[in-house]
Amino acid sequence: MIMQTSSVLSSEGKLKLIIFDCDGVLVDSETICCQVSAEEARLAGMEAPEEKAVEQFSGMALSLIQKKIEKQTGKNLGHDWISKMQKRFIEAMADHLEPVDGVYDMLKRVEKLSVPVRVGSNSSALEMDLKFKKMNMTPYFQDRIHSAQDMGKPKPAPDVYIKAASDEGVKPENCIVLEDSDTGARAAVNAGMMCVLLRAPGLPAPDWPGLKVIHHLSEFSDLIENTINIQKE
């Protein structure tokens, strides 16, 4: 059943902006980056089994991962650790990056609805540029991307989503965010936006006000189309 979203978005029920997370929503890089992070954590002496990499590091900006490793190991990873990790991510993604299942069909359907789109991610702008070029997604977003890492305010802080809405000239209550991690979903909810959480069937999901859980990107397209139809009534 498609959620009736009009009363959630604003008093007028107007959807004016869609904001996508990047990793795990558009490109399937979340697992790759989490595994690289877990490997680095183990090298530093932290317990980080490969099979729990996503559970431990999903949705986290590199600055937060560094703090987590340093706190648990008592080691100083150095001021250049983040830049080294960015290079490792880029090298890993060059060989293993894939689009999330259904993403191209979803983007085409959303594009036809003429709703503005932006991206808000914990990845750096450099990483996102590489991902979108490799996956041929650049035409959908151009320069409409926002990096929480580059802002110095990683999720779950809401700043990256508030910035995206501000640059579009719309209010938070007129935005829908598509996320895949609890960390990112918390950022969207904290920003005062409705959040749609992409989560594999059978996996637990938070039960927060303003949060809608889906299991495939086709469901997101249906939800947006339904929202637009409600606005026309």
Rank of each mutant, 00 (worst) to 15 (best):
M1Q: 11
M3Y: 04
Q4C: 04
T5K: 00
S6N: 07
S6P: 00
V8I: 13
L9A: 03
S10F: 11
K14E: 07
K14I: 11
I19A: 02
F20G: 08
C22T: 12
C22G: 08
D23A: 14
D23M: 10
L26H: 07
L26Y: 07
V27H: 07
E30T: 08
E30S: 13
E30H: 15
A38K: 05
E39M: 14
A44L: 13
G45C: 13
M46P: 01
M46H: 05
A48W: 00
P49F: 02
E50G: 04
E50T: 03
V54E: 05
Q56W: 04
S58R: 15
A61E: 06
I65S: 01
Q66W: 06
K67N: 06
K67I: 05
K75L: 12
G78M: 11
G78L: 12
D80Y: 10
W81N: 04
I82A: 00
S83W: 11
S83L: 06
Q86G: 10
F89Y: 14
I90N: 10
E91G: 01
A92R: 14
A94V: 00
H96A: 15
E98A: 04
P99M: 03
P99H: 07
V100T: 05
V100A: 07
V103D: 08
L107M: 08
K108H: 14
R109L: 08
K112R: 14
S114T: 02
P116R: 01
V117L: 09
R118E: 12
R118G: 15
V119R: 00
A125S: 08
E127A: 15
K131T: 01
F132L: 13
K134N: 03
M135C: 04
M135A: 02
N136Y: 12
T138F: 08
P139N: 03
P139W: 04
F141K: 08
H146W: 05
A148G: 15
A148V: 08
M151A: 11
M151I: 11
K153F: 15
A157G: 03
I162S: 04
A164P: 10
S166N: 09
S166E: 12
S166Q: 13
D167G: 00
D167Y: 14
E168V: 09
E168H: 12
K171Q: 12
P172A: 12
P172H: 15
P172M: 11
N174A: 11
N174F: 01
C175N: 06
C175M: 07
C175K: 05
E179I: 10
T183G: 07
A185Y: 14
N190F: 03
G192S: 10
M193K: 11
M193I: 09
M194F: 15
C195Y: 15
C195K: 10
L198P: 00
R199D: 02
P201W: 07
P204C: 00
A205D: 02
A205I: 11
P209Q: 11
G210T: 06
L211S: 13
L211Q: 14
I214K: 01
I214C: 04
H215E: 00
L217G: 06
D222W: 02
D222N: 06
D222H: 06
L223K: 07
I224Y: 05
N229R: 03
I230W: 03
Q231D: 01
Q231K: 10
Q231S: 09
K232A: 07
